[in-house]
Nucleic acid binder design. Sequence first.
DNA 1: GGGCGATGACAAG
DNA 2: TTGTCCTCGCCCA
Length: 305
Amino acid sequence: MPEGHTVHRIAALFREVFVGNRVEASSPQGRFREGAELISGSILERAEARGKQLFLHCEGERIVRVHLGIYGAWDVVTLDGDSVRAGSPQTLSLGAPRATRRRLGERETSFDADEPFPPAPRGAVRLRLETSDVVADLRGPTACEVHTPEEAAAVLARLGPDPLLDTGIRGQRDFVRRVSSTARPIGVVLMDQSVVSGIGNVYRAEILFRHNLDPYRPASSLTAETAIELWKDWSKLLADGVKTGVMMTRNDLDAAGRKRALRVARERYFVYKREGLPCRVCGVTVQMDLMATRKLYFCPQCQRS
DNA sequence: GGGCGATGACAAG
DNA sequence: TTGTCCTCGCCCA
């Protein structure tokens, strides 16, 4: 997925294009018909992310919670703002204003869509949100539900700190406390959303590598200093990811290399999906193990206990 | 056109 | 620990 950075980007985009507006909701696929009816025509009051969870607060204390899971995505098509505002006869005579399509999820893309507006739903669209000049299609989410404030609060209560929300010393202390209180492997603990929000399989592998940490080491054996460094690093990576839309975890590149890595996915990581290739730092073969059902990539040399 | 894997999280046993 | 759900793009024939 869609790790935490993606969901914060979606929330920011929704704040830009939906919040404050009356939004029509539908479920072209049919699997969210009742939920869509509950919120359709109401004003979207807030859009917030916490870790991998998105909360859309609608008028009337109805909150749509969306979790993209491993392959969910939002396709957002916006009419070009200038064209819409200009509304000049010239623009109109040229036909429909240009639409821009953005996908936020699995692989982010952005391109001008050569299609009429609103576009017909393609594939299995669980939820479509629509105003006169924006359409957002949700497909493949692991969760899409309408909650009461109490239900939403219950979900939030189960989530560990998110560096973008729990800034400062409090979030850091909370993280350190949760990490130090379990003997489970740090590679498992970083993926546990009740310990820390937003880290997924890519960030897990990369953060562990960046700190030369053996993924199997008991979390409680880390020093407080190390735990603090992990929190600070996650804070930085998340902020970067939200800004660029890309998970870029290499810190060994010059400007040109960095630019290239932003374009070429396989250049972005130290170890993720590099099983069998030489470690970028020491040259030893990168290894892949299954840890808690997920593929864990690490360098057995750089990440020794 | 079939199979498979993917940035995830549950529940059941 | 295993099974299940969600959808799509890519690989191979």
